[in-house]
Structures are given as structure tokens and as C-alpha cells.
Write a protein that binds this DNA or RNA. Structure first.
Length: 935
RNA sequence: GCCCUGGUGGCGAAAUUGGUAAACGUUGCGGUCUCAGAAGCCGUUGGGAAUAUCCCUUGGGAGUUCGAGUCUCCCCCAGGGCACCA
């Protein structure tokens, strides 16, 4: 009887759906296990073979954990809000909800084909009002909270109001509590606070709220007509679409993620995440220790505050540099320089981010005519404006030490500023010496100190004289939260007399209104400006921006726990039971986006006592990208005796295929798209005219250069899982994707080898049949069969637990080959193997399980036990382990040379005695022979 | 520039703690079955030689060890992250 995967898979997929095999309750006496995939954005292209890689791996873990006695939550949903659907809507007028719905249906169809064990009753869609009601609700909680830096947690804004009512706000004193925000908020007394108008109070509190509206430098993308968060901008262009991005200052809803910088950084150490992701997040958060330091102007009481990590080089300061955007630039510039400075600032601001980046070597600057006084030496130090100084980092001003900072060095060389060496170890006439090693010189009280000690000493002295204080700076910026877009969650805020006011919670969800067009309005307002039936329309202004794509995905893992709850975003009981994700599977591209935001929101919700965990996922695995293999094809043709070479496919329009003899040449598209080559190699279409008319083309003249790149619709290299399911079946696809190589590695898609996996399943199937009939023997297996079985079960268990799925597949193949050779078909051997195979190839496993006479699904079986006895290898071909671990170590003190070591082969009996560990003989176990050292 | 990850046959890759390097699969070659193809099945496939045997081989070089793909140091290469971050 043949392995008919089509019927088997259809049958079981229907059965699982009807019986709700994978539905889980929120209670169980079993231990819980939560396996989560990063939910997909349903794009128009459908799933390609890269998507399922992670889903298959997590499904294997989910199924394995179920067999091992865990109560497993394994849900799936859709990240349904986003730019592409809206771009498509703008172009075609199609409502994004419609295209999104269609795409979701297509995704679901594809997912169902692959036999995943998702509990679809828990499906979530971020664009569903029942879902985004709670996204909006969480936003309001953030709006109503501030970060208590002393308690290191978020608190209701009322507690801060109380502080203001009783103590007022004194920048310095309250810094411990509120963080360093002196520069934004004026000091006030309790009396002044109570005298403030509602609007003034609101403005003050805005500086503390975790979701806030404020003037902010944003990444403005004119082509998309919206602002973007830092992680959505790559190399000066938008991640989606690749359009140029400008820096622009505008009122903007933001998330105060910076408040959590320290915790986001510290808690990374506790997570079992890939080192590369943790490192990327550490870089992104960018912790740097140093100190602030004030420089007094020569002729006024204005101070310029800088941040430096190298206070030890304080005596090497030869000029100050301000960012062109710095507030003081205009104030301190001397009359004679006003015009040139203003011109320079204008020039610098006009330079786009991209230009500045492309032009890193070429620094520019302008002297302001002003001087500050060095706080220790008392010398006059010129103040410059330079565009290499970033407005957004530190204080937007630096003390320049050319001798020991390469950027200052370049600047000083260009404008002939002095270079003062204060640390030994380099040659500052040639280049700056940036290393934090050496001794201080020419530095008064720091002379002779090592850099490390000098830093401490300098900070102490600076604090002592009240010039500044030790400080930690983070590179992390607050995240822009408003998008000038339609297809996102409306921000539930309206403006009562100009005061941003939250919508009452009981009025949520604030449903996305219908609009007739998706473009911005004529007056340049976001699309929501077109909405006709808005709650407060005509009464109050309402917020027109929507939330960014990452809002809904920052808490979805919680909603799966309790997806239909209308009273809470997740019930206390559900959150208490499921805690957080045990295994989170997804792409590494979310390192500085989603994975940071979801940690931030989780910590916030934890602070508010809504959930019992402060990290979303304990274990994270990044499945590698499956890359598309594209071909650049050129052909040599002979034309009037001359050999000429043509590029068959225009650049950018490459053709998918494999670089083999059987390369499907007929798939190669010719030049302008009109010409094709058939498999014999002759140009074969009826339109074969024009320049190729008289040419003879043959396949062996076609030169193919393979290139590996990201799989994407625009590159014509997308392979979908559908045809593979049709041709070989889902079980083969699942096994094959796992067999491709280590899960975490990037790898180009290729069909090489799928026949091997397909052949394995067919052989596995055949083990259960004899002369076209299902047959298993009830005989007891012999020692050899038991060895194969137990070794295989043990290996697969261990390999799943270390997420090495490719080796699992190999183990199955080896076992099958060996059992086939023994012509073994005993129930006691095959039945456990079916259970072990079921996470990998669930359909075939279910079918065989049923044929073996079981009424219940194989998912209710238990993972087979391993009897260690059968793992002892009598032949001693390999170092032997019995009952766990037995180690033989050579004692180095014997100082034996190989020639002095007596070798002999031990009998099985002798070896077993030694393996008991009772005989105190030191041996070296070397494969194939056991060496007896005569002590 | 700084940080992270990796480098093993024609190819994808194994080698879990330092213990037979290349398991498993694919490709190639040879055979079998077939009218033929597909699918099976059998043999063979890192390199070199005096080929029942021996020697060499895990990016390069050194070191530790009875023993190194694995540990240490230096270098080279590839992929990814951050980047005038003071």
C-alpha cells in the first residue's frame, strides 16, 4: 500500500479541526508551557517557504512538550495593522480592512495545509476593535503614569501630583525621583503649582507621563507622509519603501521608553536569548558612564553644560563645540559673528541626515567669537559650532579634547586649534590617542594617575566643586508613537480647551472611523481628518494620528492567554497561570524594534500589578532567514561569425531556480520579457523575432551566476510552500525544512535533498506493510532492535531539547535504515517511533497510530521512556556511558609517554567491571581500544 | 572604528563533556529493474600513495595536552549589529 500523503493529510487536518484537538483550557494540573511564534503581518504575497521555518520548529516543540506531559499554549494570530495595506489602499482605493481580510484568509489556508497545532480559538488580530480596545486602554494607562526613578518603577500620575502639591518641583532635589529633566521643566513651589491653570498643569505633567505629547525631533518621511521610529529608519532611508527621511521638529506623541533604559539593559542578563540579540539591544540602549560638567562663559553667568566619558582629559580641552541646533548658539554668539554663524547653522540644518552620514570624514564648523573659562586652569576656551555634535545626545555640547578623541582631532586639524597631550602612550602629532590606557600628564592634580583612577578622581573633584556630577547617559531615544496614517489604532485622546484629555475608559474602543479617501486632507492633516462621524466631532478637536505598527504587537502574547475577555485585557488568573512565554520563536530583524517595545510594555504592566512577570519571554530563538536563490543569466550567441554575450534577464528581474544540470531553462525570461528559451535551448516562442532571429541558442551557452538574497516579491525569487505540500506533502515539507540545516542559520532555499526526506517517509510507511497489507508483529523485539529504538528515542529527545532539529531527522533516517535492514516490523519497536515522529510529521503519525489500533489521537500519547540498559554498547566502538555519565580521565601526574603505555584490548566482562567504577584503575578510553595503564 | 556570530568534502551538514573527523542527506559515477521514464534497490564518492595497508586533511600560524574541529594567543576571511553617541 502506497504512502498517499494527500488523503492522509486532508483527513487529519479535517479531523483536528472537528475534534478541536489542539484547544486548551486555562487550567490544568499539568505544568504549563507557552510556545509562541512572532505573528505574521499578512502581506499580499502570502507565506513563502521562509515563514514556516520558525512555525514548524515551534510546532515540534509544542507537540513534544504535550507528549512530555505539559499543558501547552500554542496560539497564532495576525499583526494586521500596517503600512503596506494602506499604501495599497492609497493606490487602488481598496479599503485596507478588505485587503487585510483577504490576505489573512490566504495565510490561514496556507497555515492549515502544514498541520500546525495552533489553538485557533485563541486567534487575535491587532486590527480587531475587540483587540485594539485594549491596546488603546494600555496607551491610556501609560498616559496616566510616570516613572519614579527612585523606586525604579512606573506609578500613577496622581502620586507625582501629590509631590508637586506638597513639595513643588525643584530640579536638583527632585532629580533622584523624576530623572534629569531640569532642562524642560521650570522650578515651582507648591503654591505656584496650585495657582497653575489646567493647561499649565497639563503641560508640566506632559514632561513626566510615559505616553506624552511633546515637541520632538522626529524622522519625517515625506514620501510616506508620516514620522517613523528610529528602528524604522535604516541608513537614512525608511525601512519600508526606502524613501529618504529628514529630521524635523514637531509636536508628537511619544513613549518614554528611556525611563526604562536601565532595567531594559540590566534584565537582559537574566534572559536566555541569543547573544547577538542581547548585544544588539545593549548597543541600541547604549549605556555610557561619565559626568556632566559646566563651563562658565567668560563674560556672563551662562553655563554651557557638557557630558563626557573622559573627565580625565579635562586639561586637554582646547575648544568647546555646540550642535547647530543648540539653544545657546544664538544667545552667546558675538555680534561680529552673528551673520556667519547664522549662515552656518542654516547650512548645517539643511544637510540631511544622509548627507551628514555619507560625509563623515568632512567635518564643518564655525567659531562663535565667544569664550568659556576652563574651570580648573582658568584659561580662555573658544566656543565653536560644529555639525559633528549631535543635538539629541547628552547635552548637545561637547568639551573637545583633540589629543584623545579622533573626531575632535579631525576638527582641530581642520581649523588649526591646539592639540594638548594629557595622556601618555600615543603620538598625538600623527593621530589622536583614544585608548583608555596610560598616565595623565600636564594635568595638575591628575598627574601620574592611570586613566581609570584619574576618571574617578576627576569626577570626585568636579562634584566637590559643584561643577557637575557623575552620570549615566543612554543612547536610546524616546519612541515616536503617532503616525500620520489611517490604518492603525486611533489614539484615544481629544483636546478639551487645548488640553490633551484621555477618552473615558468605558468608551473604548475608539473605533477607526470610515473615510472616503486614504490620502492626507487638503489642509495637510492626516487621513483621520476626513472622518465624518467622530465621537466629539464639532465639539472638541480629536487626535488625528494613529498608533504605529508596533503598538498592537507589544502585548499580544498576553491576549492569547484570555482572548475573549471583555472586562480586562487579560484576567489575573490567566496571567497568573500562563506567566510568560517559555519559548519565543521569530526573526532577528526585530531586535531593536518589537523585542524592545514588548519588553518595555511588559515591564510597565508589571509595574502596574496587572501581570506577574516583567519579561515577555524567557527563551528566544531566531530562526534563520531562508534566502532566495536568484540567477543572473547570460548567453553567448554567434552572430555573423562573432561571438556576442547577452544578459538574458534585466538586472533586478532575476529568475528563481537551482544551479544544476536540470536547471529549468524554460523559466528564463528573455530581455524585454517577450522571449523564452525552451528546455532544449532553442529560442522557442512564436514572438521570436527581432535581434535573436538568426541566432542559435543552446542551453550550454547559458551562463548562470547564482546569487543569494532575501526572498521577496520584488526580486522574483519567492518560493511558496503550497506546491511543495501538493507535490510531496506537508510532512515532507516539515521534515525537509528542519533538515536544511541548523535552525538559527541563514540558508538559501534549494530543493536539493527533498527527495531524501520524502524517501524516508515512504520507507517509514513501508515498515508497517507487508504484501500490500498493514502488518505489525506482536513478537518481542530482540536486543539489537531495542538498542536502535532506545538510542533513537533518547537522541531525539535530547536534540529537541537543544533545538537541534536537523539532527533529529537524521536520527530517524538512520533508525529506519537499520530497522529496514533487519526487516523488523514489531509493534514494540514501531509504536514508540511513531510517537517520536509525531511532532515532526503529525499526519503520517496519526494515520499509523490509528492503524495500530488506537482510538485517541497520537497527541494524547506519552513520550516513550528510555531504558538506559539498552544504551550500553558491548562492542566498545565508542566511549561508553552507563546510567548517566562515566568518565575516565588520565592523570597527568603519571607523565607517561605513549611508548610507555601498555595497550591491550579488554574483554567485555573486564570492561564492564571497570565501568562499575569500583576498581581504582586509571584508564584512558580510546575508541576501538582500551588502554590499560599499569600504575 | 567598536561589538557579536561564524569559517569542516562538489553541496546542506554531523561530531552533546577535549577521545575513530566527515554520521545523515544530496550530487556524481557504476550496476539492477523497465518497452521507456518516474519511483525503488545495490555498490561507490575528502586528498595522496607502494590501495586487504599506510600517510595527509576541520581558514592560516603558534601554544596547552598522551590526545585539539572543540581550549588559549595572534592573524585572515564572511555574515550581522552599532556608528561623528563625546
Amino acid at each position: 500500500m502506497e504512502y498517499n500523503f494527500r488523503d492522509i493529510e486532508k483527513k487529519w487536518q479535517a479531523a483536528w479541526r472537528e475534534r478541536k484537538t489542539y484547544q486548551v483550557e486555562n487550567t490544568s494540573p499539568k505544568p504549563k508551557y507557552y510556545v509562541l511564534d512572532m505573528f505574521p503581518y499578512p502581506s499580499g504575497a502570502g507565506l513563502h517557504v521562509g515563514h514556516p521555518l520558525g512555525y514548524i520548529a515551534s510546532d515540534i516543540v509544542a507537540r513534544y512538550k504535550r507528549l512530555s506531559g505539559f499543558h501547552v499554549l500554542h496560539p497564532m494570530g495576525y499583526d494586521a495593522f500596517g503600512l503596506p495595506a494602506e499604501q495599497y489602499a492609497i493606490q487602488t482605493g481598496q479599503h485596507p480592512a478588505k485587503t487585510t481580510e483577504e490576505n489573512i484568509n490566504r495565510y490561514r489556508e496556507q497555515l492549515d495545509k502544514m498541520g500546525f497545532s495552533f489553538d485557533w480559538d485563541r486567534e487575535v488580530r491587532t486590527s480587531d476593535p475587540d483587540y485594539y480596545k485594549w491596546t488603546q486602554w494600555i496607551f491610556l494607562q501609560l498616559f496616566k503614569s510616570w516613572y519614579n526613578h527612585k523606586a525604579k518603577k512606573a506609578e500613577p500620575i496622581e502620586t507625582l501630583v501629590k509631590v508637586f502639591e506638597t513639595e513643588g518641583f525643584n530640579g536638583d532635589e527632585h532629580e533622584v525621583l523624576t530623572g534629569d529633566i531640569e532642562q524642560y521643566v521650570q522650578q515651582f513651589t507648591p503654591a505656584q503649582w496650585s495657582a497653575f491653570s489646567e493647561k499649565e498643569k497639563s503641560n508640566v505633567l506632559m514632561n513626566f507621563r510615559l505616553a506624552y505629547l511633546g515637541e520632538a525631533w522626529v524622522n519625517w518621511c515625506p514620501a510616506l507622509g508620516t514620522v517613523l521610529a528610529n528602528d524604522e529608519v535604516k541608513e537614512g532611508v525608511s525601512e519600508r519603501g526606502g524613501y529618504p527621511v529628514e529630521r524635523k521638529q514637531m509636536p508628537q506623541w511619544s513613549m518614554r521608553i528611556t525611563a526604562y533604559a536601565e532595567r531594559l539593559l540590566d534584565d537582559l542578563n537574566e534572559l536566555d536569548w541569543p547573544e547577538s540579540i542581547k548585544e544588539t539591544q545593549r548597543n541600541w540602549i547604549g549605556h555610557s558612564e561619565g559626568c556632566s560638567l559646566k563651563f562658565r562663559m567668560e563674560d556672563s553667568t551662562i553655563d554651557i553644560e557638557v557630558f563626557t566619558t573622559r573627565p580625565d582629559t579635562i586639561f586637554g580641552v582646547s575648544y568647546m563645540a555646540l550642535a547647530p541646533e543648540h539653544d545657546l548658539v544664538e544667545i552667546i554668539t558675538k555680534q561680529d559673528y552673528k551673520k556667519t554663524v547664522a549662515e552656518y547653522v542654516k547650512y548645517a540644518k539643511a544637510r540631511s541626515e544622509r548627507e551628514r552620514m555619507a560625509d563623515v570624514k568632512n567635518v564643518t564648523g564655525q567659531f562663535t567669537g565667544a569664550y568659556v573659562i576652563h574651570p580648573f586652569s582658568g584659561e580662555k576656551i573658544p566656543v565653536w559650532v560644529g555639525d559633528y555634535v549631535l543635538a539629541g545626545y547628552g547635552t548637545g555640547a561637547v568639551m573637545a579634547v583633540p589629543a584623545h578623541d579622533s573626531r575632535d582631532y579631525t576638527f582641530a586639524k581642520q581649523y588649526n586649534l591646539p592639540i594638548l597631550e594629557v595622556i601618555t602612550g600615543g603620538d598625538v602629532s600623527k593621530e589622536s590617542y583614544d585608548a583608555k590606557e596610560g598616565k595623565c600628564i600636564n594635568s595638575q592634580f591628575l598627574d601620574g594617575l592611570e586613566v581609570k583612577d584619574a576618571i574617578k578622581r576627576a569626577i570626585a573633584e568636579i562634584e566637590n566643586r559643584g561643577l557637575g556630577k557623575g552620570k549615566v547617559n543612554y543612547r536610546l531615544r524616546d519612541a515616536a508613537f503617532g503616525r500620520q496614517r489611517y490604518w492603525g489604532e486611533p489614539i484615544p485622546i481629544y483636546y478639551k480647551d487645548g488640553v490633551p484629555t484621555p477618552l473615558p475608559e468605558e468608551e473604548l474602543p475608539l473605533v477607526l472611523p470610515e473615510i472616503d479617501k486614504f490620502q492626507p486632507t487638503e489642509t495637510g492633516d492626516p487621513p483621520l481628518g476626513r472622518a465624518k462621524d467622530w465621537k466629539y466631532k464639532g465639539q472638541y478637536d480629536y487626535e488625528l494620528t494613529t498608533m504605529p505598527g508596533w503598538a498592537g504587537s507589544s502585548w499580544y502574547f498576553l491576549r492569547y492567554m484570555d482572548p475573549h475577555n471583555e472586562k480586562e485585557f487579560v484576567s489575573k488568573e490567566a496571567a497568573e497561570y500562563w506567566k510568560n512565554v517559555d519559548l519565543y520563536m521569530g526573526g532577528a530583524e526585530h531586535a531593536t524594534g518589537h523585542l524592545l517595545y514588548v519588553r518595555f510594555w511588559t515591564k510597565f504592566l508589571y509595574d502596574c500589578f496587572f501581570i506577574p512577570v516583567n519579561e515577555p519571554a524567557q527563551k528566544l530563538i531566531n530562526q534563520g532567514m531562508i534566502q532566495g536563490l536568484s540567477m543572473i543569466a547570460t548567453v553567448k550567441v554567434v552572430h555573423e561569425g562573432n561571438e556576442e554575450k547577452y544578459l538574458l534577464v534585466p538586472p533586478g528581474e532575476k529568475v528563481n531556480g537551482t544551479f544544476q544540470k536540470n536547471y529549468p531553462v524554460d523559466a528564463v525570461k528573455f530581455l524585454d520579457g517577450k522571449y523564452f528559451i525552451d528546455e532544449k535551448g532553442a529560442a522557442a516562442t512564436r514572438e521570436r523575432e527581432a535581434i535573436f532571429r538568426n541566432y542559435f541558442l543552446s542551453a550550454d551557452r547559458i551562463e548562470l551566476t547564482p546569487i543569494v538574497e532575501k526572498m521577496s516579491k520584488s526580486k522574483y525569487n519567492v518560493v511558496t510552500p503550497d506546491n511543495i505540500c501538493d507535490d510531496y506533502g506537508a510532512d515532507t515539507l516539515r521534515l525537509y525544512e528542519m533538515f536544511l540545516g541548523p535552525l538559527e542559520q541563514h540558508k538559501p532555499w534549494s530543493m536539493n535533498g527533498i527527495t531524501g526526506v520524502f524517501g524516508f517517509l515512504k520507507r517509514f510507511w513501508r515498515m508497517f506493510f507487508r504484501i500490500e497489507k498493514f502488518f505489525v508483529s506482536e513478537e518481542m523485539p530482540d536486543e539489537q532492535e531495542l538498542k536502535i529504538l532506545h538510542r533513537t528515542i533518547k537522541k531525539i529527545k535530547e536534540d529537541i531539547e537543544r533545538y537541534s532539529f536537523n539532527t533529529c531527522v537524521s536520527s530517524f533516517m538512520i533508525a529506519t535504515n537499520e530497522l529496514m535492514e533487519l526487516k523488523s516490523s514489531k509493534r514494540a519497536v514501531l509504536e514508540p517511533l511513531v510517537i517520536a515522529l509525531s511532532p515532526f510529521a503529525p499526519h503520517i503519525a496519526e494515520e499509523l497510530w490509528e492503524k495500530l489500533g488506537h482510538k485517541e489521537s497520537v497527541t494524547t500519547a506519552a513520550w516513550p521512556l528510555v531504558n538506559e540498559e539498552y544504551l550500553v554498547d558491548d562492542t566498545f566502538d565508542y566511549p561508553v556511558q552507563v546510567n548517566g555519565k562515566v568518565r575516565f580521565t588520565y592523570t597527568a601526574s603519571l607523565h607517561l609517554k605513549p611508548a610507555e603505555i601498555e595497550e591491550r584490548v579488554l574483554s567485555t566482562e573486564e570492561a564492564k567491571k571497570w565501568l562499575d567504577g569500583k576498581t581504582p584503575v586509571k584508564v584512558i578510553v580510546v575508541p576501538k581500544r582500551i588502554v590499560n595503564i599499569v600504575v
